[in-house]
Design a protein around this nucleic acid. Structure first.
Length: 215
DNA sequence: ACCCAGGTGGCCC
DNA sequence: GGGCCACATGGG
């Protein structure tokens, strides 16, 4: 994948806070649409916790409209902000200092933040050693014939154990690049409707052209 | 006129 | 634990 697509340098954002906002907005949504929402937020008042906490829910809904599911996502942003301001005073640096398992548990306790959003936050915003599992990961590795489970935690452990390096920072960078490359491969070749032609993993794929599998 | 996107929660069994 | 559904805009 690295040969085919090159280094991805994820996550595209100007700040850790922007990563978290993007992670919520990109739920079941193409990144192109999220970019529109993020740029209107920046234009309106800047992408910072104080501003997002200050603006009215209805105004927030309008600003993020292009990202889809805008009403529910506006509320999800507010839900995260309540927690973020209360527990960490709106500082990602404070959050990074805290215990990974504790943060993960707290994030999952927020309505609207599930496992993928929580883990994207931990890995890409807070630089924690957590691997992100998404629909592409499940689909690609199921079709390759490498995994036969749909269980998020089992998959996460499998990938974390397989990708772990001696050095902590190398491991984190490996996790970041691997997930980004999986998404790139997925977007280009491993969609629900399989493309397969010219897929860099075609020769090692055991379930070419399969449509019904894990989501 | 479809199908799909870097999910999540609610409800049901 | 799993299956089904709503949530919504924009691009192919």
């Amino acid at each position: 994948m690295l040969d085919a697509f090159g280094k991805q340098n994820w996550w595209p954002a100007d700040s850790s806070f922007e990563v978290i906002i993007g992670a919520i907005l990109t739920q079941q949504t193409s990144w192109k649409n999220v970019e529109k929402a993020i740029s209107s937020l920046k234009k309106e008042g800047g992408l910072n916790p104080e501003f997002l906490n200050y603006i009215e829910l209805g105004r927030l809904e309008q600003l993020i409209k292009p990202s889809g599911f805008y009403k529910i996502k506006a509320q999800r942003l507010k839900n995260f902000l309540d927690y973020f301001l209360k527990e960490y005073n709106g500082k990602t640096e404070k959050m990074t200092e805290d215990n990974t398992i504790k943060i993960r548990k707290e994030l999952l306790n927020i309505n609207g933040i599930g496992k993928e959003t929580a883990d994207s936050t931990l890995l890409y915003a807070l630089n924690k050693e957590i691997f992100v599992i998404d629909a592409y990961t499940k689909r690609i590795f199921f079709r390759l014939g490498i995994v036969d489970t749909n269980d998020y935690e089992k998959l996460r452990e499998l990938f974390e154990n397989s990708l772990k390096e001696k050095d902590h920072l190398n491991t984190i960078n490996k996790f970041k690049e691997m997930h980004a490359l999986i998404v790139e491969l997925g977007k280009n070749y491993c969609k629900k409707d399989p493309i397969c032609n010219n897929c860099p993993l075609f020769s090692s794929c055991k379930r070419k052209g399969v449509k019904n599998e894990y989501s």
